[in-house]
Deep mutational scan, measured.
Amino acid sequence: MASQGTKRSYEQMETDGERQNATEIRASVGKMIGGIGRFYIQMCTELKLSDYEGRLIQNSLTIERMVLSAFDERRNKYLEEHPSAGKDPKKTGGPIYRRVNGKWMRELILYDKEEIRRIWRQANNGDDATAGLTHMMIWHSNLNDATYQRTRALVRTGMDPRMCSLMQGSTLPRRSGAAGAAVKGVGTMVMELVRMIKRGINDRNFWRGENGRKTRIAYERMCNILKGKFQTAAQKAMMDQVRESRNPGNAEFEDLTFLARSALILRGSVAHKSCLPACVYGPAVASGYDFEREGYSLVGIDPFRLLQNSQVYSLIRPNENPAHKSQLVWMACHSAAFEDLRVLSFIKGTKVLPRGKLSTRGVQIASNENMETMESSTLELRSRYWAIRTRSGGNTNQQRASAGQISIQPTFSVQRNLPFDRTTIMAAFNGNTEGRTSDMRTEIIRMMESARPEDVSFQGRGVFELSDEKAASPIVPSFDMSNEGSYFFGDNAEEYDN
């Protein structure tokens, strides 16, 4: 783990906690998980779902989305002020799938948001429990990260689609708070800032007046979040320049895209947490497990152990491969979309394939898809080993990566060399080191050039047997250095459309 220093740990961010010791953190995270579980059980009762239907990941996603929508204050306010045809701002819903006479049927349900809020609060001892809501947002974000390569979004903001390893959390809503900021990748933060800068260039009043003052505060806050992700002084200094700019424009845009590229080699610290679907927490609570009393951590053995003992089902389209669908969801559960496939294969105990080789589309089923041909199958979400999630980018030494994705962002704290394609990355730096950030740029390029592919990161860190909950005997895996390590390699994943 990167030293926490003055930073709060993510469990504290996750639970809005002030400084807590490890036991208190485990208890408050457990409380959050228990609340999600209780809410899910109650919703299944309301909807009269069978046990099997309640364990269907598509039903879980609909129920999670309903509660997130019920608590989305800004959108609710907007919907009330701008009524649109056929949208009731006070209601929320989605597809629920039921097994009827041996076939899967889709039923569109509609609930009062007020009623959903009441059920959620009741499951969370009367609190709004925003930490639990954020947790579900991060699960949705991790699922998107594993399912889609955001080529269009990258290109629109002047970045290269091969930089997708920097895009963790790119679909997280803005209201996801400190826990959300911690899991956002460098590219995601750059993209958010670039969008602001572009608006400022096109709209003279963007930075002016009372609204402009708020915009400015948001801009500086985002700059500080991004600065905190960088691990070298030169990158941090460049972020200070971007933040202090009187009138952010093209120079800042250039600096930010430069920094994003540099992060492929001088990786930023991005938190990883295993956020599971509500249909995993519900049955665990129903079986009598007391998360608050037992304590829970999002970055240790607990999620692995929970998945070892969970039964989750998914709808499967006619030509999809259930094992591939399982891999997709497994990666999402562990926030591992940008991790090295060699490491993932070792931990999972079966070969993890790149996205383009998977015969599976996303987990969600569109409303126009034919239910007649839908089957369902068990998702295999178990693992051979477990490993500690990392909050750091690993040290800054790398190795060759593949054509589709030119770097990785480690999820697990496991000893290995970190793949990246130096030639491709360095070719993108057209040696432009003039301007006010020239000395920093020169320094950053120097550090990137001296990074050695064969150097090892996370020295001495290994994986653990599932029986080793105290992480007492690390097993340090050895990897084939020459092997392909990137998930979005030469990829044809669908595009994420909101």
Rank of each mutant, 00 (worst) to 15 (best):
Y487S: 03
G460S: 10
R267W: 09
L358T: 12
G35F: 08
K357L: 07
R199L: 07
V100N: 12
G94N: 08
A22G: 15
C223W: 13
L381I: 10
G93A: 09
G490Y: 02
E380C: 15
M448W: 03
S310T: 11
T6A: 11
R221H: 09
E252V: 06
M196T: 09
S269T: 12
D497C: 00
N211E: 02
P453F: 03
P248Y: 01
G282R: 00
G86T: 14
M159E: 02
V194K: 01
N59D: 13
F258I: 13
G209M: 07
K7V: 00
E339F: 04
T350I: 08
G200T: 05
I119Y: 09
N368T: 15
R243K: 10
L418E: 02
S50Q: 15
A234V: 09
E46K: 12
D160T: 02
K351F: 02
F206G: 01
L133Q: 14
E375M: 14
L56S: 13
R461I: 02
E192W: 13
S287P: 00
K31P: 00
I197G: 15
R221E: 08
T45S: 13
E254F: 07
R55P: 01
M137S: 03
F291Q: 07
K348Y: 14
A337N: 06
D51R: 00
C164A: 09
L358A: 03
T437V: 04
E465Y: 01
L353V: 02
M1V: 09
F458R: 00
R19Q: 06
I301C: 06
G158I: 09
R38W: 13
P354H: 04
A337K: 03
L276W: 01
A181L: 12
E443M: 12
P161K: 08
Y40C: 07
V352S: 05
S367K: 07
E443Q: 12
Q42L: 07
S482L: 04
G158N: 09
Q122E: 05
A146D: 02
E372C: 04
R8F: 03
Q364Y: 11
A472K: 05
V242Q: 06
D16Y: 10
R342W: 15
L68R: 05
N250G: 12
A428D: 00
G349E: 11
T130W: 12
K77Q: 11
I347W: 05
P303T: 15
Q20G: 03
F479I: 15
I33R: 00
G177S: 11
L154S: 07
E46S: 01
W207N: 03
I225V: 10
R213N: 10
C44W: 13
S478P: 11
D51M: 13
R199A: 04
Q364W: 09
G93N: 04
R98P: 00
S473L: 01
E339A: 04
P283H: 13
G295I: 07
W104Q: 04
R26S: 08
G177L: 02
L68V: 10
G93I: 02
T157W: 01
M163I: 13
S269M: 09
Y219A: 06
L61M: 08
N202M: 07
S467G: 11
T360A: 11
I25P: 00
R441T: 08
P83E: 05
A451I: 05
L49N: 00
D302W: 11
S482W: 06
Q409A: 12
A263Y: 05
A278E: 01
F479T: 14
M331H: 07
A218S: 10
D421W: 02
S392R: 07
R38N: 04
F420V: 10
G169P: 04
L61Y: 01
A286M: 11
Q364V: 07
F489C: 10
G249H: 01
K214R: 12
D112E: 12
L133A: 10
D203G: 09
L172G: 08
V186N: 11
I388G: 13
G485V: 10
N224P: 00
K184C: 01
Y10S: 09
Q235F: 03
Q149E: 12
G356Q: 03
E81G: 06
I116P: 01
E449L: 12
